[in-house]
Amino acid sequence: MTRRTRKRIAILISGRGSNMAALIAAAIDPAFPAEIVGVVSNRADARGLEIAKTHNIPIKVISSRDYDGREAHDAAIHEAITGFKAEIVCLAGYMRLLTPDFVKKWKGRMINIHPALLPSFRGLDTHARALASGVRIHGCTVHFVTPEMDEGPIIAQAAVPVLTDDTEETLGERVLKIEHRLYPLALRLVVEGRVRMSDGVAVFSDVEDERRDLAIVSPGERRS
């Protein structure tokens, strides 16, 4: 029997790397169609680097302070990713905007997870903004990366109710739990070619078994 080749994944982080850890955990299963081959951070103090080290995943720190401008910094990141022989890039809490040239190089092969139900609440402070707006449903989105921030074609979303006694912290914790479920699912579909970006939209095929999971709805957790 011919052994299936797993896709090679590089992950970009800036902080704690909890979504990176969820992808690593999924990839530990030999049946998962991808393997994590490298982690790049723009911060040497990113806590996620230690997680990668414990799994013997190669890491690379590329600080923007060491480069003259965004283009040079992103060129160094591209060089590191290609050095890992990565085929797909996952952004997992990477907190810098990528240049259009970098995004173009990885068009259709780079995905991101955002802590809101896009197109609502693009950018930062999503949980606080959701609470301030009075929405009753909040969540997260995995999408293809395009030059416009948080505007790429949507791959999958997960939702949670906003409880009347929620704070930014409690809402964020509940959303994070479903992020960890959603990101591995979305990556699997991209790796297997069952969702791809074409003409600015996400095109799906053979996703009947995952159709419900592409829009996960998690029940609210009541606190005593």
Rank of each mutant, 00 (worst) to 15 (best):
W106E: 07
L49P: 05
D165M: 13
R43P: 05
R109H: 02
A80N: 06
I13M: 07
E35Q: 11
V175P: 03
A21N: 08
R181I: 14
P58F: 07
E168A: 14
P33D: 07
R65T: 13
A25H: 05
G152A: 14
A46Y: 01
S205F: 05
G172C: 09
A34E: 04
A158P: 08
K177P: 02
R65L: 14
G17M: 00
E87G: 10
R8P: 02
C90H: 01
A75T: 14
E179P: 07
F121K: 08
I28N: 07
K104A: 10
H73N: 13
R196A: 00
G108W: 02
Y67P: 14
V61P: 15
T82K: 15
W106S: 09
R122Q: 13
A75G: 11
E35K: 04
L187Q: 05
A215Y: 13
A26W: 03
K53L: 09
R194W: 04
H73F: 15
E50T: 13
T146R: 12
I57E: 04
V40F: 05
V195G: 00
A10K: 00
R3S: 13
D45G: 08
A44R: 12
L171T: 11
R3F: 09
V39R: 03
I178H: 06
V191A: 13
H143A: 05
F102A: 01
R188M: 08
P33W: 06
A202R: 03
D101H: 12
S63L: 04
S41E: 08
H114P: 01
R194K: 14
V37T: 04
K177H: 12
L176T: 06
A116H: 02
T164H: 14
D74T: 04
R4Y: 08
E169N: 09
R122Y: 06
F32H: 00
H127I: 12
P115V: 12
S205G: 12
R70D: 10
S133F: 13
L189T: 03
R109A: 00
I28Y: 06
C90Y: 00
V103P: 00
E192V: 06
D66G: 04
A10T: 12
P119W: 05
R47C: 08
D125R: 11
F144T: 01
G200I: 10
A92L: 10
A10P: 03
K85H: 05
T2V: 08
N56Q: 09
T167L: 13
G69K: 09
F32T: 00
M20K: 01
A25M: 03
C90Q: 01
